Every structure is written in C-alpha cells, then in structure tokens.
Amino acid sequence: MSAPDTNLKKQERQHRAPLWGIWAGLGLVALLFLGWLGWVMANGDAPEAQGTVTDDFTGQSEQVNEDAAVERDAQELNTAPAGAD
C-alpha cells in the first residue's frame, strides 16, 4: 500500500537539514580520527639504539654485544647434544 498523497519535492526539502547534519557529523568524526592519528604518530616512541635492551620490570637499559650473542648461538647449533653418536 502506498502513501495517499506523496510530494517528493516537499519531502526532499524537509529532509535536507537532517541529511546535512549527518554528513557534518561524519566529517567531524573523520577530522577527529585524522587528528588522533597524527597525534599518535607525533608522540610515538623512537626506536631504541641498536644493541640496547631495556628490562620491562626494572626499566634499566644495558648494552648487548650482538656479535657475541650470534657467535654463541652458532656454537650451540653446531654442537651435538650429550649422548649423541
């Protein structure tokens, strides 16, 4: 069943303000999102210097000799476990 007296031009005029309000709201949300994204990127933590490890529990940083760690890992991989033939 259809509406008895439909005037599309009048309905367009009556719905214009609510539709503009919806578009304005979506635009505001988009601007707020872009502002938040920019703020997060600007205030992000810089990567730590290579070879520095920070203990999450104490917050202390210590230097790590990566060459020694790589050499130790290679030695562990190249040795046979005890009791192996």
Rank of each mutant, 00 (worst) to 15 (best):
Glu66Arg: 07
Gly27Val: 06
Arg13Ile: 10
Lys10Ala: 15
Val40Leu: 11
Thr6Gln: 13
Leu34His: 04
Ala17Tyr: 13
Thr54Lys: 15
Val40Cys: 04
Glu66Pro: 01
Leu19Pro: 00
Ala42Arg: 08
Thr52Glu: 13
Ala80Phe: 13
Asn65Lys: 02
Gly51Leu: 06
Gly27Lys: 09
His15Phe: 14
Trp23Ser: 06
Glu76Tyr: 07
Leu31Met: 10
Leu26Tyr: 15
Met41His: 10
Thr58Ser: 14
Val40Pro: 01
His15Ile: 03
Thr54Tyr: 05
Ala42Asp: 10
Gly83Glu: 03
Asn78Lys: 06
Met41Trp: 15
Phe57Thr: 13
Pro47Arg: 08
Gly44His: 14
Val40Gln: 15
Val70Asn: 07
Glu76Gly: 05
Ala24Ile: 13
His15Trp: 09
Ile22Gln: 15
Thr52Gly: 06
Gln14Cys: 02
Thr6Lys: 12
Gln50Leu: 11
Gly38His: 11
Asp55Phe: 02
Asn78Met: 10
Gln11Asp: 03
Arg13Gly: 04
Glu62Tyr: 08
Gln60Thr: 07
Gly38Ala: 14
Ala30Gln: 04
Leu34Asn: 02
Ala42Lys: 07
Gly35Thr: 09
Pro81Phe: 01
Val29Gly: 03
His15Leu: 08
Ala24Asp: 03
Asp67Asn: 02
Thr6Trp: 12
Ala30Met: 06
Val70Cys: 01
Pro81Gln: 10
Gly27Gln: 06
Leu31Arg: 08
Ala46Arg: 12
Glu71Gly: 02
Ala68Phe: 01
Val29Met: 13
Trp36Lys: 14
Trp23His: 01
Ala49Arg: 11
Met41Val: 10
Ala30Tyr: 04
Gln63Trp: 09
Asp67Phe: 00
Thr54Asn: 01
Ala68Trp: 01
Asn7Tyr: 13
Gly25Thr: 08
Val64Gln: 03
Ala80His: 12
Trp36Gly: 11
Trp36Gln: 15
Leu32Tyr: 10
Asn65Glu: 08
Val53Tyr: 14
Gly35Phe: 03
Lys9Glu: 15
Gly21Leu: 00
Ala69Glu: 03
Pro4Ile: 07
Gly35Leu: 09
Phe33Arg: 08
Leu8Val: 14
Gly21Glu: 05
Gly25Tyr: 07
Asp73Met: 10
Glu71Asp: 12
Gln11Gly: 03
Trp20Ser: 10
Leu19Asp: 05
Gln75Asp: 02
Ala30Gly: 03
Pro4Asn: 10
Ala49Met: 05
Gln11Phe: 09
Thr58Phe: 01
Glu66Leu: 15
Pro4Ser: 05
Gly59Asp: 09
Val64Phe: 01
Trp39Arg: 04
Pro47Gly: 02
Glu71Val: 06
Val40Ile: 09
Ala68Asn: 00
Phe33Gln: 00
Lys10Val: 14
Phe33Asn: 01
Ala42Glu: 02
Thr6Ile: 15
His15Lys: 04
Glu12Gln: 13
Asp56Phe: 08
Ala49Cys: 00
Gly35Trp: 04
Ile22Val: 14
Gly59Glu: 06
Gly25Cys: 05
Gly21Tyr: 03
Asp5Gln: 14
Gly38Cys: 14
Ala42Gly: 00
Leu19Lys: 15
Gly27Ser: 07
Leu8Ala: 13
Gln11Tyr: 09
Asp55Pro: 03
Gln14Gly: 03
Trp39Leu: 12
Thr58Met: 08
Glu66Thr: 00
Lys10Glu: 15
Asn7Arg: 13
Ser61Trp: 02
Glu71Ser: 11
Ala49Tyr: 04
Asp45Pro: 00
Ala24Gln: 13
